[in-house]
């Protein structure tokens, strides 16, 4: 847990996220969301979750965001329609619910000491001591593959069926005549 990766990735993810939800132009939102995902990937790599970090870039920033861009271009929204949608509604409700959720989590994290430094176990040294240097996992593909194909084989196959259903469903929904 390098401070440098945390502050860089965290500011990228949070700043990109804020710009994503506030930009009027949907294409700008997509591009800022890609910045946010790159920040998330930095955070994952900083936590030794290399596989998840690479997956984040390949699947999210690569495949899913390109799909979003394609759909936005395909919709070809008229300027008047965009303008009507730009006026945000429920800003107070949005701010209140987001603030309430964040306050809840902050209260939980600061209330108990088990995740912070000090006598809690959240510091780098405490984590290393608890999990041991050798079993620090590092999110390697080998370890995750072992988990996926042994302990979680059924969910893994179910996920593949889910993706197949999604593909067929997307085609069935968008095609005018089957």
């Amino acid at each position: 847990m390098d401070p440098w990766t945390f502050w860089l990735g965290g500011s990228l993810a949070l700043g990109g996220g804020l710009l994503t939800v506030t930009r009027k132009n949907a294409v700008a939102s997509v591009l800022w969301l890609i910045v946010a995902f790159l920040g998330m990937s930095t955070l994952f790599l900083g936590m030794d979750a290399g596989f998840i970090g690479v997956l984040q870039i390949l699947v999210y920033a690569g495949a899913i965001m390109i799909l979003f861009l394609f759909v936005i271009m395909l919709l070809n929204l008229t300027p008047s329609g965009l303008l009507r949608m730009d006026r945000p509604r429920g800003t107070t409700l949005g701010l209140a619910s987001a603030a309430a959720f964040i306050a809840l989590i902050v209260a939980i994290v600061t209330g108990g000491q088990q995740w912070t430094g000090g006598q809690g176990g959240g510091s780098e040294a405490a984590i290393l001591e608890r999990t041991g240097e050798a079993s620090m996992l590092e999110g390697s593909v080998l370890d995750i593959a072992d988990q996926l194909f042994n302990a979680h084989l059924l969910p893994f196959e179910a996920a593949s069926v889910l993706l197949l259903v999604a593909i067929v469903g997307a085609v069935a929904l968008t095609k005018r005549k089957l």
Binding site: M1, A36, L43, I105, G120
Partner: peptide, 16 residues
């Protein structure tokens, strides 16, 4: 940086 930093950051991103 402790685990709590990451939890608070994840709450912020979720809130946004």
């Amino acid at each position: 940086i402790t685990t709590s930093h990451y939890i608070v950051l994840s709450a912020l991103i979720f809130g946004v």
